[in-house]
């Protein structure tokens, strides 16, 4: 469903992606792992068109990104941002129903609110959270609201950028389980970026290891522990010694 071919991206003299190739089949959950600053978020933003790649091609459903109706393209995606990226000035339910309150997916106010409350329940939040402002929520609750917003318009493709960063292990486990359940339930194609190995094992169908701007290894999550790839082995076991330099 999503295919990246030889994608390059540099910021000034810093070459982040150096020919990244990746294929994510429809309905599967792909998790990209890799150290900090290896370009995982850049790859994700290139797919969405938030960052323009310098070279290479990205296809969604066989159609190259950047061509055609941008609104229709973006309407297929939902995204959970690392910090939640909730709109401070809007109450929780309006954050969740943002897409349903304007544009082509606009619904009547009451219906949008009902959908928002339903999605909040889906991620384990009570209806009384709906009228609070994001600043009144804990970090874990903000992630859940972000997740509810990502699934509110029932997108075909959902991106998760570091979904468990900054959460305690129990809350991280809850978010991982929610992501897995929602992706399976909706039949959506998912791409997750993380360096949390418990997230990888909970969420992934397939795993791709990004290092030095290219995918070093990719395969089913079950093959990850016996991959024989020195980069992947070092990363998943968290060893300081290996081909990946500890000081970058």
């Amino acid at each position: 469903m999503i295919r990246m071919e030889n994608v390059h991206k540099a910021f000034g003299s810093n070459q982040v992606l150096r020919g990244m190739d990746l294929n994510i089949p429809r309905g599967s959950s792909m998790v990209i792992i890799g150290g900090s600053g290896t370009g995982k978020s850049v790859a994700l933003k290139c797919i969405l068109g938030l960052i323009q790649h310098d070279e290479g091609k990205i296809f969604v459903d066989g159609k190259e990104t950047g061509t055609g109706d941008r609104d229709a393209f973006l309407a297929r995606f939902g995204m959970l941002f690392q910090g939640g990226a909730l709109f401070d000035s809007l109450p929780v339910w309006q954050n969740v129903a943002f897409r349903l309150l304007r544009g082509s997916l606009m619904r009547p106010l009451e219906e949008a609110r009902e959908i928002a409350i339903d999605k909040l329940r889906r991620v384990g939040l009570r209806a009384n959270v709906a009228d609070l402002l994001p600043a009144e929520l804990s970090g874990g609750m903000q992630k859940r609201v972000g997740l509810a917003r990502a699934i509110a318009a029932e997108p075909e493709i959902i991106f998760f950028d570091e979904p468990t960063t900054g959460l305690d292990p129990i809350m991280a486990g809850v978010i991982n389980d929610l992501i897995r359940e929602i992706v399976t339930e909706m039949g959506a194609t998912a791409m997750t970026i993380t360096h949390d190995m418990s997230s990888v094992r909970a969420i992934a169908d397939n795993v791709a290891m990004l290092h030095d701007g290219v995918i070093q290894w990719t395969g089913p999550v079950g093959d990850m522990d016996q991959s024989g790839d020195p980069y992947l082995d070092q990363f998943i076991h968290g060893r300081a010694e290996g081909p990946i330099e500890a000081v970058r």
Partner: peptide, 17 residues
């Protein structure tokens, strides 16, 4: 600027706005 730093601007774009 705060919206930009906290990725709220990117979030707007992904929400087709």
């Amino acid at each position: 600027a705060t919206m930009k730093v906290t990725e709220q601007i990117d979030a707007l774009v992904t929400l087709s706005t």
